[in-house]
Structures are given as C-alpha cells and as structure tokens.
Amino acid sequence: MAADKVDPIHQFHITKILPINVGHYDVSFTNSSLFMAMTVIAATAFLILATSGRSMVPNRWQLVAEMSYSFVANTLRDAAGKAGMKFFPMVFSLFMFVLVANLLGMIPYFFTITSHIIVTFCLAMLVISTVVIYGIWKHGFHFFGLFVPSGVPAALVPLVTMIEVISFLSRPISLSVRLFANMLAGHITLKVFAGFVVTLSAAGVAGMAGAVLPLAMAVALTALEFLVAFLQAYVFTVLTCMYLNDAIHPGH
C-alpha cells in the first residue's frame, strides 16, 4: 500500500469493473465510467436536494445551487449575449460536470476523470462541433468569414486564412489540454509531496521532523488544487461561451 502512495501515476490507472466488448472495441465499465456516473449522480442529487425547499429565502445549499446557476448564466450572457442563452443547458451541464468531476477527484483514492485527455478532448469537441454546426446552420457560408481576415494584402489572404483555420482547429486541443494538464499536474504534484511525507515519516523521528515541510506543502497544494478545480471549470465555461459567441455572431 505504501508503494501505491508513492507511485504518483498509479492514481490515473483505469481498471475494468465490468468487462464489455462490442466488436473490436473494449467498452468495459471501468473505474473511470464509475466516476463519470458518480459525477452525474452527485451533481444532480446535489442540485435537486439543494433546491427541494424551493424557499423564497434560500438556505446555504440552495444558495450554492442558485449561485452556480446565475454564475453560468451571467458568464454566458456576458460573452455571447441574449442569443447565447439557448445554449445555457449545455454550458451549465459542462460547467457542473467538469466542476463536480474535478472536486470529486480531490477526494483521496477517488479517480479524476478530467485527468484523462480523451475525456476533456471529447468535451471540447462537443463544444467545437456545436459551434461549427450551429454556425453553419445559422449563417451558412457566412460562417467561414470567421477565417478570412479583413485588411490583409490579397497575396497573404490564403496564408493567413490557413493560419486562422489551424488556430480555430487548435481550440478544442488547447481547451482540453489545459484542463487535462492542470488536473494531471496538480494530482501528480500532490501525490509526490504526499509520498515524501509518507516516506520521511517512516524513517523515524528525524524523518518526521523533516516531513513537516512537505506536509505543509501538501496542505497548501491541496488548497491550491481546490482553487484550480474550480478555476479550470470556470475557464472551460468561459472559453465555451466565447466560442459559442463566434457561432452566434460570426461577423458579416
């Protein structure tokens, strides 16, 4: 068990709980799937239970639920205007899903689904596909005006357009890499410091004295990671809103 604690990568391993195979694909129910389900259950249960009172003067939990609602609504309205509010359920779901997944991951021995690039990439792709599909559906060919800059010499237009397209395509990657890298790096760092504490305190009195510093670091990092867990969910939401804004108002 001590070895598990010291190995900072172990926490990201995916273990099968219920092996399922569909054709060539291994779609087993894994610990990752379990925590996805737990994220959904935890977030939904919290939001429903917190608002069960439906009181005029909210209690603490209802206030948290209401605050997350108005927070996402304000962010979306600020970034994408009134027209963006039709995406509110999607943006809110993304925010709550990422936030609750990040926070659940902070609990010791829990799996952090957002520390896997494929999960964050899928969420980012969901956003970008929404932007592209809605943009083309709403504005047709006009939507591609997003990639053609104005005020650039004609000779450079193809080059700049190419760069703009790559820049646009890099959005889901940067969006997912950022969330993934933050969660991964945070959890590895935490694990490493926690490992120091365990290893040093196992080495007697002097070791315990020496473990104080890494312990303090681990505590500080935990606090920081909670902040990061929220902040990354927020950044993900803000960027989602801004990309949606491009789909709603792609210019003339």
């Binding site: 600020d78 950044v235 803000v238 804004n245």
Partner: peptide
C-alpha cells in the same frame, strides 16, 4: 452588445 470577458483566468 456583448462584452467579451478576458481570457486571463487560468491556474492561479
């Protein structure tokens, strides 16, 4: 009509 929020939010 909309104000774009700054994109500075990231790791503290």
């Amino acid at each position: 009509e909309t104000r774009r929020p700054d994109r500075d939010g990231d790791r503290p």
